[in-house]
Simulated scan of single mutants.
Amino acid sequence: MAQLDVQPKNSSPWWIWLLLAIFAILILFFLLRGCNSKTTVVSTTDSTKTIAVTKPDWNSVDFNSPVITDPDITDKDIVLSGTDKYTIYTLGENILFATDQNNLQGSADAKLKQIAASLNKRFKDAPIAIYGNTDSTGTGEHNADLGGWRAKTVKDWLVANGIDGDKISLHTFGESKPVASNETAGGRQQNRNVQIVAFPDSK
């Protein structure tokens, strides 16, 4: 009778299975982390788009807009202009401030109170921008700074009198946007002004 030589089958070493298990766990870990990163990026992008849609386009404001009236504004030193999208309140800097200063004069209080009352009545939730303008006396850098400081002074007054400061942005044109000639005293006086722009149509 023939003898059968049957050898037992060799099994794979245990450490090969251990390495395969570790490798599979690592792949699973990196896949899950990659998915979480993608979700975060999408969420941030969507949030940014929402903010951009609600921001007013201050560059679209035409400061030569037609003069308009408001029954609540009776002070003749306050000039109103604008369109159906925004209203501009203009006050001469010489009325609000002494020459080359950024502290409000005593007469400014009553005028700013009229503007604040009008803003609260007509533009309660509207974004507001304050622009400071100067004549060309002095350096351009100094005038840009002065316009900015005067705009901030007006903002601080409005906030102290009930206007939401989070809705107010500050801008300065300095001497760069004259409305009259800087060659005459009268023209320079016109160029020294502060403009408060309410922009309810922010879409």
Rank of each mutant, 00 (worst) to 15 (best):
S43V: 07
V197A: 05
T134L: 09
S169W: 01
G106H: 06
D145W: 13
F97L: 07
Q189I: 09
S47Y: 08
G138C: 08
N191M: 07
D75V: 01
E183L: 13
I168E: 11
S37G: 01
R122A: 02
I163M: 06
K76V: 14
G165V: 07
D75Y: 02
V154Q: 07
W15C: 10
P71Q: 09
I51F: 09
F97H: 09
G165Q: 04
T45P: 01
K76P: 01
I163D: 05
L146K: 12
L146D: 06
D70Q: 04
D156H: 06
I16G: 05
A117D: 14
S181Q: 04
A24W: 07
T69R: 01
E141G: 08
D135S: 10
P13Q: 09
G147H: 03
L80E: 03
N36P: 01
L28W: 12
T48G: 00
I51L: 14
I78M: 04
S65I: 05
I196R: 09
N102E: 10
D5Q: 12
I196F: 06
G148P: 03
T134D: 06
N161M: 05
V197E: 08
Q195Y: 04
D109R: 09
D166W: 03
G106S: 14
E141N: 13
T50L: 13
Y86T: 00
V53R: 15
S136N: 15
K38E: 13
F173T: 15
D5A: 07
D156I: 03
I168H: 10
F63R: 01
D125G: 13
K155Q: 15
G165R: 02
I128A: 06
I78L: 04
Q190T: 00
L32K: 11
D75A: 12
S37H: 10
V79F: 03
K177E: 13
G132H: 08
D77S: 12
A144C: 00
V159W: 03
D72T: 11
S176H: 08
L32N: 11
P71T: 15
D135N: 12
I68P: 02
T87G: 11
P8T: 04
S60C: 04
V194S: 12
D77P: 01
D156E: 15
D84Q: 11
D145I: 00
D125H: 06
F23P: 01
L31H: 09
M1K: 10
L158K: 03
S65V: 05
